[in-house]
Design a protein around this nucleic acid. Sequence first.
DNA 1: ATATTTTACCAAAACGTTTTGGTTGTCAAT
DNA 2: ATTGACAACCAAAACGTTTTGGTAAAATAT
Lengths: 350, 350
Amino acid sequence: MDICVSKYYFMDIRKLAKKLNLSITTVSRALGGYSDVSETTRKKVIKYAKKYKYSPNPNASSLASGKSNTLGFVIPLYGLNSNTLNQASFFEFIAGMSTKIHSENIQFFMMFANNEKEEKNAYEKLIHVQKVNKIILHNIKIKDSRIDMLKKNKIKFVAWGRTQGLNNHSWVDLDNEESAKVIMQYLIEKNHRHIAYANIAENYNFAFQRKQGYLSSLKKNKIKFNENYYISIKNEDPDQSASAIKKMLNKYSKITAIICSTEYSAVGAIKACNQLNKKIGKDISIITFDGPVVSTIANPSLTAITHERKKLGQKAIEILTDMDKNNKTYTYLAKANIIDRGSVCKLKKK
Amino acid sequence: MDICVSKYYFMDIRKLAKKLNLSITTVSRALGGYSDVSETTRKKVIKYAKKYKYSPNPNASSLASGKSNTLGFVIPLYGLNSNTLNQASFFEFIAGMSTKIHSENIQFFMMFANNEKEEKNAYEKLIHVQKVNKIILHNIKIKDSRIDMLKKNKIKFVAWGRTQGLNNHSWVDLDNEESAKVIMQYLIEKNHRHIAYANIAENYNFAFQRKQGYLSSLKKNKIKFNENYYISIKNEDPDQSASAIKKMLNKYSKITAIICSTEYSAVGAIKACNQLNKKIGKDISIITFDGPVVSTIANPSLTAITHERKKLGQKAIEILTDMDKNNKTYTYLAKANIIDRGSVCKLKKK
DNA sequence: ATATTTTACCAAAACGTTTTGGTTGTCAAT
DNA sequence: ATTGACAACCAAAACGTTTTGGTAAAATAT
């Protein structure tokens, strides 16, 4: 891997204009796609710009235009620290973004917030100092003041996640409700009827949505919702999950399957079953949402439904570039697939 | 959380100068810490700058100075995709950096590379287009051309990780060799003598260094290195580890403890023991390096030695700011602590 | 008392773009 | 032949800083 060192390697617009015998203005406008440049000239300019690796100085460009063609992204570290699983999903999102960002020649400015105050400052800086004109909004709250703020400042944004109410802006999200239905269909086809659900706190939107899918599938299949089969743990703590699940399984022996809303609940379920000496995939069936870590690490492996999180990041960028062209809003729901790892068994038909 | 919307909220240097009845030059130089400004004036300027939340336009500033006071960081996604564990360690590093970056008022420009070519382009862009003057170098190779390149371009950098040879630049790293020795001491105090080592490919520097610590501890304690107790798996694949460890344990029944070089080997070890019906922490002892994920997820939990990875990120930034002041190079080795989770038992003395 | 140095300040140029407000020449309509 | 519209181009201003190359006044040295 050799890397350029020379200083004049990257040409400025003046030299390029001189070489082409054109004015700076024309070169700038040719590259900017303006219509007051003839197509022959534009082609020539583009050709030479490529040949000499001309790359506009982003500082000069932003200073002159007042825009910065930079995408802002605030990462709330305080919600991610020591949460390996969320970190992983973040990374997949970013990885997805990065493939598209490179191809579209956008810059990318990330800021980190260790608490709510820093998060607020970060958005102020992104908008007023960095002059970003695009933002990816993450960690959506039910009532989210950032949305109004961005609208007022006329900054294009895509939210990663939805609120429970109206979302009249662009967003990308997992199709949580649908995924829960897919899981339910899968279990019901295998003749499970006493299906427990281990959730985390419902004020997480995704947790709420997944539960909705569970409930609506029960209804559709004329199974009555049994609230004893439903657990909601506040913290993302496998051990709390484990003890709740253990209690439930002890008390309600009819349960044949558990749906785990997150990897944390899944680990809890594994622990509970081990402690009760129930063989997973035989005595009891377990299926979990997501599970990139559980799938590589946990023992035994679990059948899971996984979303293409990388696609979320890619779509977010695609949407932002589309929004530049026309002033619509776009949405994208990532579908999920079941990966069979043998932790769900087929029951005999009654 | 309310966020500023107004446009004139952030003042520019001209308005600030007018308000203070000073020239733009003086304001700029007062804030820049130059000596041709009286201390009384400087204090007044700083006070008002704070009061009116003056924050220099970074584009104008970079354009004028040719520098960008921005820290560059290229993330090689191609080595991280679908590797949840490395992702986690990345995140901890970044989290550590971000605490320091905020307090030192440095900006932070990240680029993503999906392959080697993109990685090369990323460094070119960081230096010649973005004009960063500081870089964090990651994914150090044995012969790393980036190091020469950065030196030629006079860009200050800190490497995250070391090569096996001379490292006459600033770096931060885990104290892998020492950690291995600590583990060995821990096992030997518990009277283990037949200690196996499950490694990944040795051409990873950290894997090499850890092995060195293992070997040197053996020597120090006059235990002969038994190559049958040593496994090296090329891929980061728990199942390959599992089958190799299973074979080893079957053949060499004297083994009482296994050191796992990574979380992957640890999962392999758990699987192997389960398959052989060996009770971990009783029939066999397991201790692993790192293990943020294993500790939350794996079942059973494992005693582990963990490094303060967050400190690595923090130190990297501290070093870069120190390097700004004096032209020295600095190094930092992160120490590790053993976290007892009961997977290592004490043997009776023979 | 005069020359020199030092202190504290400033006007103007520079950074590399984009944008504004033109000009020139060509072609079609009158 | 003259006018109007349009296509294709350009010079100069603007963006908000930093830096350069000063000056005037105060302090010190001769």
